[in-house]
Amino acid sequence: MNLDFAQLVPSIPYILYGIWVTLQFVAVSLVLGFLLGTVLSFFKIGKVRVLRWFADAYTSVFRGTPLILQMLLIYYAIPQLTGVDIGAFTAGVLTFALNSAAYVSEIIRAGINAVDKGQKEAAMALGIPYRTMMMKIILPQALKNILPALMNEFITLTKESAIVSVIGALDIMRRAQIVGASNYAFFEPLLLAGLIYYLLVMLLTIAGRVLERRLAKSD
């Protein structure tokens, strides 16, 4: 066994730049996935049957098929069908946002259902309109309860983002592989990539704890 980290040193900035790519990718997917997931959860608890059916079918499909299959479909199929080349980054973001929305919608739905129904009755008795009630009374309470589950989903998203390396997006994972291939030494760059992912997840975990503590101020 001969590990040579000195050989890796010139490539470190190249790999580190992947953090920026991964972060951009994760942040955009996370926000889009969360917004779409919220809308889907409203569909699920709403009274309109078509929307309820749509949201259930949506969740079922995106949870029921492999993420990498969804990504390859979006990356290769959209250009095939429309002639528009959407690029690896866009295809990746689209896949992850759509996929994450399915999971997030289930988490939020459960959170909303867990809020005491007396809250809704109190809001109704005060004449508070449905939208305001959902956005300002029910959802804040639901979010507080589901924060750990949401953080879990965000952490999964961050790690799973490494799959975009398959379609050639230059994220941390892809860069580590490229460096490994050009040096004929994979252990060192992959170890570095692993360390970076771990630190990113730790940062997310800490951010989640801080947020949780801030939301707990009313307890």
């Binding site: 005491d116 007396g118 809250q119 109190a122 008795a125 005060l126 004449g127 009374i137």
Partner: peptide, 25 residues
């Protein structure tokens, strides 16, 4: 209406509980 189990909004302060509907409605 006043309920048996109060149903105050737990994420709002006492004053915010009282002013919420007058502000919103």
């Amino acid at each position: 209406m006043v309920f048996q189990h109060f149903h105050l909004f737990p994420h709002l302060t006492v004053l915010e509980n009282i002013t919420f509907a007058p502000l919103q409605v």
